[in-house]
Design a protein around this nucleic acid. Structure first.
Lengths: 217, 217
DNA sequence: TGTACATCAGTGAACGCGCGTTCACTGATGTAC
DNA sequence: TGTACATCAGTGAACGCGCGTTCACTGATGTAC
């Protein structure tokens, strides 16, 4: 109730902006419940009073939007890090998928606001997707696998283009992640093996017919 | 505000129970927003006052649970109907998948409460899954494809068993459905072709190596 | 056939709560002269 | 070097709202005698 944070010095008011975003992300992770993350709870976590939030964000949606952008960038970084260890284009797709699922399982409430909630706070409109680095990077990785001749698109293949192939992989990874998050009580088999098998099946489903089914694992 | 429904005759009080469930499902479909479906809104849609709801359900969760059971059964029926038209086991898996996605797209808010919300109101715990007909039927369909020798599990295959293979297919179908529902602003390619390709890739990813990649479409 | 009465299917008004947001304000801090 | 003052970074109290739920009640309906 009583604020505990030491007031910023003059000219350093912007410090609170970053603190609010960080506290919101932390509250989401700790409570695992978006509805528990109210303006009052955020203000309390930062150590200020609720109206202070409005000195830095026009409304709650804008704040959650800022959190989404931050977490989206964190996801991209995780995927890029995972991709660096890859030995070949198929292995990269598998590693990216595994890193994606793990990001979701480690930060379920962050994943929820990014990919499971309605368009608000973050929209996936065409304009926004152009600077959605994580998705662009994934399309590029798929294109590299196509260029390497190991993943197939077009005549006789399952997918007609790199975009559709990327969405197919995304659907598998997101489907598994969101089901694991939403339905933890389901009698899931061993999670690690499940992730591996689901992603392997997803990549295998896009292989050029006759290619080695065992690679990419 | 003023109730419009004609009071049930004595002994027919249970009629309101079904009317409440139906009105709740209808409100979910019409508003497309679970938060708009309050006890007051439901009572208003039925033509009674809010306290009347509590004559038939202990609380709101129990009401939503009843709605979920109803919609879950509707989903199962749709999948069974789709399966009846199948020409072979792989075609059945594809048709079940397509029917699943279409059910979600036609009833996005119903799909949301069934598969995208937290465990509440409906839990997917082991006990509950035993009578979750839709899932059991899907596992059986996968088993038929395995028995027919066209879908592979175990050594050298992507999936180790029918359960895991079913989850892989479910992940693809659910992933696509939930992304389409949650992110309608994304620059999706043609929906019908997208559904077809994603499901084809999902089934293909589980084929016995060397089987015809073209079937099941 | 008539009537007292228990019961059933609801109603009307209110409860406490937490929410996002607004508005008038305060007090410390740096700066101009 | 001292001081008046504008500005910045917040505070304190309250607003209206809609929510799930409760409680005491009412009036029509079927039934027992």
């Amino acid at each position: 109730v009583t604020p505990t944070r030491i007031r910023a010095r003059r000219g350093e008011g912007e410090l609170l902006h970053a603190e609010i975003v960080a506290a919101t992300a932390r509250l989401l992770a700790e409570t695992g419940d978006e509805s528990a993350v109210s303006i009052r709870a955020i203000a309390d976590a930062v150590g200020v009073t609720p109206p202070s939030i409005y000195l830095h964000f026009p409304d709650k949606t804008a704040l959650l939007f800022a959190v989404c952008e931050d977490r989206f960038q964190a996801l991209d970084q995780r995927l890029e890090d995972a991709a660096r260890d890859a030995t070949d284009p198929l292995d990269e797709l598998h590693r990216r998928g595994a890193a994606y699922v793990r990001f979701g399982l480690e930060n379920p409430e962050h994943y929820r606001i990014l990919f499971m909630d309605r368009d608000e706070p973050i929209s996936f409109s065409e304009e926004r997707m152009t600077d959605a680095a994580a998705f662009t990077h994934m399309v590029e990785a798929v294109q590299r696998a196509i260029d390497a001749g190991v993943l197939a698109v077009g005549d006789g293949a399952t997918a007609t283009d790199a975009m559709t192939a990327t969405i197919a992989l995304w659907a598998s990874a997101h489907g598994l992640t969101s089901l694991l998050i939403a339905k933890p009580d389901f009698p899931w088999p061993s999670i690690n093996e499940l992730i591996d098998q689901v992603l392997r099946a997803a990549v295998y489903g896009l292989l050029r017919a006759g290619a080695d089914a065992g690679s990419g694992a």
